[in-house]
Design a protein around this nucleic acid. Structure first.
Lengths: 215, 215
DNA sequence: TTGTCAAGAATGAACGTTCGTTTTATCGTT
DNA sequence: AACGATAAAACGAACGTTCATTCTTGACAA
């Protein structure tokens, strides 16, 4: 018995070909899913978009669910990286700069092939899928929890640097900043006419507010 | 010939009964759709949840799409009313109070039968449906545009009252406030452990920030 | 008040279609 | 020639919807 039977025989096409096919499928499916959602998109739709047959696609992904999971994980990874990179900057940038970096990276850099709105739509579709897929839900909650902790540390750094005149709970403020980012992504998905600079201006406006009735 | 043949005979059951049935179907379907989304929920699921037969449901709604549309419109109406009521208060409340009123009303008052997370999940599902249903998409964009105008006026009122030390574009700031609300709804849907008071604290934290490098 | 009856309300099995997936045949590379 | 990669047809299952039928309601005659 040849050892190659254990480790597998050489593939008939190059690894680069296999990788390219896989990416071709994922990108075509992403476009379909962003457009119509995971469940209103049929495998036939994906096959047509990828210009591939059923047999070809099912060689790379064992099921539609696996394809959905792969695409969701891809989105998770991109978003989490963007959030963490932005938070790692020292000294901590002001919220408008911080969110600008996160959203600039998420909506522009992560998907070179697709436009920002397509990716934003995919993100919203992934949100809904996490509501019914416990595995995806756990992944999302885990990532969100980690992000909240990192950003809460950032809020503490604001206070220590004298940039924040308030004893606000760092976790509350982290959640609020993340909510602003999520809302921006939702608007990008739903309306498509948003600019990161607009959100940044709005945040600076909020930071410039004061209550005349307060001390 | 009796005149009743012209205006139609009396209904065999009371209008109250018909209204109750219709509400029963809508609420059962809302629970299903919030749980699994519009397309991963089968009519059989809805029938089971409503404890009704197919024929009964199809007497009240001509198709699944019509049921989806009715539920989406219902969510639109509730949300738009919450936003506009909050903005009509004079003098304009600070953003934390404003968003607290919107979200308190949207997530608590609008759906007495369902809990806040169920309604939030339904809202996110409606978002994704507007991406593929042009009719719903137009309704959403129309409502969002109206909301932006109302809230931009509110930002102008802030400035005139001396509560906002910035020449920020009112529309940018309106979008940002709405984004915060949308992000909160997303978090309520996805994680379910959010409190409106937390968002309000976070907004007050943002308003208490200042850049030591700036003038 | 009670009994009768037409019509509306509700049922659930069955329909045609489309789904995700599998199987079979062909192509292309080594 | 051999075998993996792809195409294309075909599969059972599940979908939304329909329809022949049964149940229920309420007006009206007695």
């Amino acid at each position: 018995m040849n050892v190659r039977f254990i480790v597998g025989v050489m593939a008939r096409v190059s690894q680069a070909h296999l990788d390219a096919r896989r990416r071709q499928i994922i990108e075509a499916a992403s476009r379909c899913f962003a457009r119509n959602g995971f469940h209103a998109t049929s495998m036939q739709d994906v096959l047509r978009e990828a210009q591939l047959s059923a047999g070809a696609v099912y060689r790379y992904f064992p099921s539609k669910d696996a394809l959905v999971a792969a695409i969701a994980e891809r989105a998770f990874t991109a978003i989490r990286a963007a959030y963490e990179d932005a938070a790692n900057a020292t000294p901590p940038p002001m919220p408008d700069v911080l969110l600008g970096r996160v959203l600039g990276r998420v909506l522009v850099d992560t998907v070179p092939g697709a436009d920002a709105q397509t990716f934003a739509r995919l993100v919203v579709q992934v949100w809904t899928e996490t509501l019914r897929n416990d595995l995806l839900g756990d992944t999302l909650r885990e990532g969100y929890g980690a992000m909240r902790r990192v950003w809460a540390d950032l809020v503490r750094a604001y206070r220590e640097a004298g940039m924040l005149d308030s004893d606000v709970d760092p976790d509350d403020m982290a959640r609020t900043l993340i909510a602003a980012a999520q809302g921006f992504i939702a608007q990008q998905a739903l309306f498509g006419d948003v600019r990161v600079e607009g959100l940044q201006a709005g945040l600076r406006g909020l930071m410039a507010m004061r209550d005349p009735k307060a001390g």
